[in-house]
Computed example of a mutant assay.
Amino acid sequence: MTQAAISTAAIQVPHTPLLELDDIDIGYDGKAVVHGVSLALPEGQIGCLLGPSGCGKTTLLRAIAGFEPVMRGAIHLGGRAVSEPGHTVPPERRGVGMVFQDFALFPHLNVADNIAFGIRDWSRDARTDRVRTLLKLVGLTGYGEAYPHALSGGQQQRIALARALAPKPALLLLDEPFSSMDVELRGDLAREVRRILRAEHTTAILVTHDQHEAFAFADRIAVIHQGRIAQWDTAYNLYHRPADRFVADFVGEGTLIPGMVCTEDRVDTAFGEIQGSMSEQLPPGTAVDVLVRPDDIAIDNEQGTVRTEILDKAFRGADFLYTLKLPDGINVLCMAPSHDNFVIGEHVRLRLDFTHLVVFSRGSGVDCPGA
């Protein structure tokens, strides 16, 4: 069993999930673009499909919604098969809501009528009460008579969300809903939308290419690579326990440096010997690549043991992200508080803060020096 499969199995829940994808393939003209995807999302949890453009995440979302058939496997919603080869329950009969990238608000309808659009068959009193409740929930009480063109992008996003929530869908799907927002607003809005979904006890799936949105929004994240799930896990595990090199590179910032396994908790690298619990148990002498995150090392000219040169720096407000050159020419990234403003070309010393070692085997090597 692969590490990704182990990671997926470890987070499965004993009760029936609201959404279950069972080894599905999706494709066009007989050619699969999504391969063997399986995951389970319990009721009330928020999931995310994260990956670069063209990886298949939006195709997967469209299949969950009912807009694309599956070539193999099955999609179950609330214990009912809604997609199998030759059988697809239409979107309007799935009890699934959607929030689109462009919001798709009706410009000729005011805010209240936009929200009430999907519950037109409810009684007048029930519609009015639901609209009032949702306007309060999204923080736009008093905006019912306004029109979409008079709202900011963030306000339009909240109205689109309220409209999707109005019929109380079993599952809400969000397709890159924050992509048109300013970078500064995205994280705040993602956290606000998460709060709203929690208040409504709504199960949801977000599609995004932005890991910061995913981290702020989701309980479980599926990293998609070339149409497959590389890892389905918590944000913490994706960052600290990536299942493969793609996840290690795509999630967070970091560098893979060569090393040699010395013991079960010690690796020889350009830093010298580093120690910590290892993500994979490998025999001594195995050549590995070690993941170095910016928070694994710290600039410390008093107690640091590794001499480096500053090649580049990026100001991030409270911190600088430095690019440092090790003695053997390897470059690594290091985050440091911005009150210490080191200059490019300056030599500084590093203190190692490794608590665990994420390693990927490169095959067998020679004996570790000094082992």
Rank of each mutant, 00 (worst) to 15 (best):
Q3Y: 14
A4P: 02
I6H: 06
I6S: 02
V13S: 14
Y28N: 10
L39N: 00
L41M: 13
L41G: 09
G44C: 02
F67L: 15
V70I: 06
H76F: 12
R93F: 07
R94G: 11
G97A: 00
V99F: 01
Q101F: 10
A112T: 05
F117Y: 11
W122F: 13
R124Y: 01
A126D: 15
V131P: 03
G144A: 10
L151E: 04
S152D: 06
A164K: 01
P169N: 12
D182F: 11
D182L: 04
L185D: 07
L189W: 03
I196W: 02
E200K: 04
T202R: 09
H212P: 00
A214K: 03
V223G: 02
A235S: 14
A235V: 01
Y236R: 15
N237P: 00
H240F: 14
R241T: 04
F250G: 01
G259R: 11
T269I: 07
G276W: 07
S279A: 07
T286Q: 04
D289E: 13
L291S: 03
N301S: 04
N301R: 06
V306T: 15
F315H: 11
F320P: 00
L324F: 03
D328L: 07
G345T: 02
T355Y: 14
L357G: 11
L357V: 03
